[in-house]
Design a binder for these strands. Structure first.
Lengths: 342, 342
DNA sequence: ATCTTTCGTCGAATCGGTTCGACGAAATCA
DNA sequence: TGATTTCGTCGAACCGATTCGACGAAAGAT
């Protein structure tokens, strides 16, 4: 009665041991399962643990075992761009981490390399998952020098010796073109990420563009790549230009979630119906496909799978496995109502 | 030379001490500043720290001092709803936490109360910041029983004894009405969050609605509150209904970031110009105001300020301060191009 | 010149676990 | 039956910090 109400400030392994009539080390072995324990003792200990509401002290555990059960996740928290996708990555990483009995420490990209150094060498986390690595990212050399496992979400241009997980954006670009070409479109435009993204050297943009261009050449269709800033005017004037210079464009590939609503709204406004006059393929999370005037044909950005896979690889290398393989997930096209025969 | 390249697996305070020719405790005092240290010793120690790249072991530190310098942040990671706003909160909390020399452990709402219990009693974090608390939230009693500071982002309906930070949504609703009424609009509709939000008892929705309704009554204007699901058809048919039943509506308050593009696109499509025919006030982060066909008059959701304030309150109560005050931030209206005289 | 304070530093205890070697009892083998 | 292995448990060392009491030296008071 009294005890339940009191602040049992911190239940230690010693109290559990005493309450179960065994030694602290035995309790530890019951929890970790690293030595065989008699069924009777096991039951006794587990009961005490439950009854006292025992949770091992994370710090003590980290100190003794050099394992924190924490993964550091480094995300780009520019609040303007990409939000939905980033959020989805974060969500899936946290969920996957919990499934593997780990917690997630959140770091932002703009703290720079120093923060990673700090987290790694103060043993705040066992491993790092890093999003949005740019070409020539100053963090890469540091990550390589770290004594902890690192997994990248989003592959940098050149293999850097770190394991990566990402959508195969090159293939994704090709799939978009193939789909539209199959439908008879002979002139296809790409509404890509903002120039800033290209400039930063975030590789997915370049890879997608290459896949797009190469596939178009291979299929003998005209490719019109554009970059597009994240504002309504940019979209509007961009489309003005596009249709003025290339009136034959009937297919649009939008690789920029942020401008999707604007593109659709603007198309409608200028009297081009989707899909009767223009076919649109969007590269975005599937969850975004349905909430538009017309359900969008998409190549999905599988944030969930990528996040889960990243965690899995991380945990595996914590388990001692090595190997810096890069895993690119095959793109998945879902045909909905925004594409039709030319 | 050699040393720099080697994996100096873990630099300890002892090595720093030896390298500086002092006792470990002295190093500790240099770092914490809890005892006076001679300038000479201080310099010596700080040099060694820098030279060796010393970072105190977080676990050891937590064990010895019962302070982790980690804040747990509990967020709703439904990936469908609210994403942008949630993201902004997260970003600002992380930034503010770092400014106070703390790190952030990310937990998701759907792990439930047990996860909070776990994090608190395993000393993974010093304090909790909890977003999206619902009325009758099962987590509240548990949080109250916790021996650690807790701050809520978003105030629940009834004061629950926990400190809260939030936008004053009641006042926000009133401000929207006042602005439109000042412009001469006599019939104003509210496009609110989805019914699911109301059902969950997330209080901001109800508070905003109350502010909206009360202010309308006080000003003698007609108020037409609507809830709106997060899909294009819902928006479209919702506006159909609205204008059919209330053809006199000339002012629209949109308290639902997710449907903003849809609302604007649909209005345009049905030939109602903004702001000539309909005035629109949006309740959303300021960063969202500009990227629409027409720059939106908004009442800002000050995620940055709220997040920063939450962290500040948390850190303060870690410092021993008590007091469970609720702080509601005054709404700020920014007039842009989407509102005009009726 | 002596007696207090103050200052700067040190050594040792402590935090709460994990893990290794040891050891008695039970089980297996010869 | 005695020798050997296996099983289950314990005690103690250790992980890397913080923090408190002690203590010599320098500074100030009388």
């Amino acid at each position: 009665m009294r005890f339940d109400d009191e602040e049992h400030a911190m239940v230690t392994i010693h109290e559990v041991a005493r309450s179960a009539g065994v030694a602290p080390s035995t309790v530890s072995y019951v929890i970790s399962g690293k030595r065989s324990i008699s069924p009777k003792t096991k039951r006794l200990v587990e009961e005490s643990i439950r009854r006292l509401g025992y949770h091992p002290h994370a710090g003590a555990r980290a100190l003794a075992s050099s394992k924190t059960s924490v993964l550091a996740l480094v995300v780009p928290l520019r609040t303007d761009l990409n939000v939905a996708v980033v959020m989805q990555f974060v969500a899936s990483v946290v969920k996957a981490a919990r499934d593997h009995d780990h917690d997630v420490l959140l770091l932002t990209k703009d703290e720079g390399p120093a923060a990673l150094q700090r987290v790694a060498s103060s043993a705040l986390a066992d491993a790092l998952i890093v999003m949005d690595v740019e070409s020539d990212d100053p963090r890469v050399p540091m990550l390589l020098a770290l004594d902890r496992p690192v997994v990248l979400i989003g592959a940098p241009d050149s293999p850097c010796g770190l394991p990566c997980v990402d959508l195969d954006f090159t293939a994704a670009g090709a799939v978009c073109v193939a789909h539209l070409a199959d439908l008879g479109h002979r002139s296809i435009a790409l509404v890509g990420p903002s120039p800033a993204v290209y400039r930063r050297g975030t590789s997915y943009a370049a890879r997608f563009l290459r896949g797009f261009t190469d596939a178009a050449r291979a299929r003998g269709v005209k490719a019109v790549p554009r970059s597009c800033r994240h504002s309504y005017e940019a979209v509007s004037s961009g489309l003005d230009d596009l249709f003025a210079q290339h009136p034959d464009v009937t297919g649009l590939v939008v690789h920029n979630e942020a401008v999707l609503p604007a593109v659709l709204s603007d198309l409608r406004h200028r009297g081009r119906r989707v899909p009767q006059d223009v076919s649109v393929v969007a590269v975005c999370p599937d969850s975004m496909a349905e909430n538009h005037p017309v359900a969008l044909t998409t190549v999905a950005i599988p944030a969930d799978e990528v996040g889960a896979l990243a965690v899995e690889m991380t945990v595996r290398s914590l388990g001692g496995h090595t190997g810096a393989e890069t895993r690119l997930l095959a793109p998945r096209l879902t045909v909905r109502d925004s594409t039709a025969r030319a």
